[in-house]
């Protein structure tokens, strides 16, 4: 049986595990706990003109022979209370390693249904730069019943544009409105090759 925060507090209080000062009410304590654990909504970064509807539900976007460093991109979809968002759909799209979006087909485009724990993961390649955008980036569109659509982009802390200091230089791309969208890149080996591993959790706001 899963208890919500208030029920858990009530049980703890009933069993003496929690002793409340006379000036603190149970709802106030529950609210404070909620607030302390509240997750910040993932910042918006615009949809851009390259979204394509009805992408296939592929998790392996990288094909043998694709240029570019392999990328393992993963994360979890939460709400602001830190709970998994049920029935979410995640559209992910990015350029190939040369900076081209596939308009005719669906290369490097997918729509994912996260698992029961809200997790998603794809294998792809690190996208390239293209002339009219400053930074390498991956587009996200996340929708779920009862939640506001989340439109954002993920950036790579290793992008040369940041000169090794993304906290200072992330605004070099005018569309990157928050350092929270710049994610560290772990270089790992999968036994056969080096892979750029990036984790990008997504936090949705209730409608």
């Amino acid at each position: 049986m899963k208890l919500n925060r208030r029920e858990l507090l009530e049980r703890c209080a009933a069993f003496g595990a929690v002793t409340l000062a006379s000036s603190v009410s149970l709802p106030a304590l529950a609210a404070a706990w909620d607030e302390a654990e509240r997750k910040k909504t993932t910042p918006h970064s615009e949809l851009g003109p390259f979204f394509k509807r009805d992408a296939p539900h592929d998790t392996v976007l990288r094909k043998p022979g694709d240029a570019g460093m392999p990328m393992a991109l993963s994360g979890v979809v939460y709400d602001t209370r830190g709970e998994v968002v049920p029935d979410a759909k995640i559209d992910i799209w990015h350029t190939d390693n040369a900076g081209f979006y596939d308009i005719d087909g669906y290369r490097f485009r997918t729509q994912l249904i996260p698992g029961p724990k809200g997790a998603y993961a794809i294998d792809s390649v690190v996208p390239g730069h293209y002339p009219s955008r400053v930074c390498q980036h991956v587009h996200y569109l996340v929708t779920a019943p009862g939640h506001k659509p989340l439109i954002t982009q993920m950036y790579f802390a290793t992008d040369p544009v940041f000169d090794g200091d993304p906290a200072k230089n992330y605004t070099r791309d005018p569309l990157c409105g928050s350092i929270d969208l710049v994610r560290p890149v772990m270089i790992k080996s999968d036994g056969n090759q080096m892979v750029a591993a990036v984790t990008f959790d997504l936090v949705m706001e209730r409608a």
Binding site: G48, P49, R133
Partner: peptide, 8 residues
């Protein structure tokens, strides 16, 4: 623009 310029 959208991402780049207000192309519309």
């Amino acid at each position: 623009m959208r991402s780049l310029v207000p192309i519309a």
